[in-house]
Write a protein that binds this DNA or RNA. Structure first.
Length: 201
DNA sequence: GGATCGATCGGCT
DNA sequence: GCCGATCGATCCG
């Protein structure tokens, strides 16, 4: 099975954010294959993006965004959730793409086990329709921070069917009210039109 | 259906 | 000491 390579990610971030839609994210967990189609992404671009973790310059946490493309940036937020990002563009230009939602494909039983709290079954729609949810479903945490996703093991991407521009929508990013008005308004969130697993409709 | 709010902790000022 | 690239429970209609 072909794998998306570093060249795919080392391009302008908006291009990569659009092109990631429809690709298949694969997580290998002790030989078990959990996977889903990427249906929603968000771009965080450059030192002047006041919504980005890189807005205050380089720190220990965000230094990875200044490094080579094709590695996972996984961080912990709100005291309980993880977010999966992929570093893009060229070194020394801080940029990354947040994976916001998946359409579950293989391994849905395991995703259920990772996601459910009590013993109550979870509706399939709630497995991976949000950035915190998909990390929980695929067992992605800080141990995968800095992991190169171009190696074809543990965590990687496989090409899906190309999507026509007509199938893709763009709009403002979510949860960044602290940013400047221009950055809040920038249409740097992308999703597949009409897909049920997009986090906000 | 929508609005509101608490959980919970690491990173940064 | 503050606050967040979120989620789910709860309350209201």
């Amino acid at each position: 099975m072909p794998i998306l390579t570093q060249e795919f990610f080392a391009r302008p971030t908006l291009t990569v954010a659009r092109d990631l839609l429809g690709q298949r994210l694969v997580r290998d967990l002790d030989g078990q294959r959990l996977s889903g189609l990427i249906v929603e992404t968000e771009a965080y671009i450059g030192p002047d993006d006041t919504a980005s973790h890189a807005r205050m310059g380089r720190t220990d946490r965000n230094a990875i965004m200044f490094g080579p493309a094709g590695v996972a940036y996984v961080y912990f937020i709100y005291g309980m959730y993880h977010m999966l990002n992929i570093v893009t563009d060229q070194p020394d230009f801080p940029a990354a793409i947040l994976i916001r939602a998946l359409e579950p494909l293989t391994g849905q039983t395991a995703m259920q086990a990772h996601r459910q709290k009590n013993n109550r079954p979870l509706k399939p729609i709630n497995l991976t329709n949000g950035p915190g949810k998909l990390c929980q479903a695929l067992a992605i945490d800080r141990r995968l921070n800095h992991f190169p996703i171009t190696q074809g093991h543990t965590l990687w991407l496989e090409p899906g069917d190309p999507l026509p521009d007509q199938a893709i929508a763009a709009g403002p990013r979510v949860g960044i009210d602290y940013a400047t008005p221009e950055c809040v308004a920038a249409p740097w969130r992308f999703w597949i039109k009409g897909n049920r697993f997009v986090s906000k409709r």
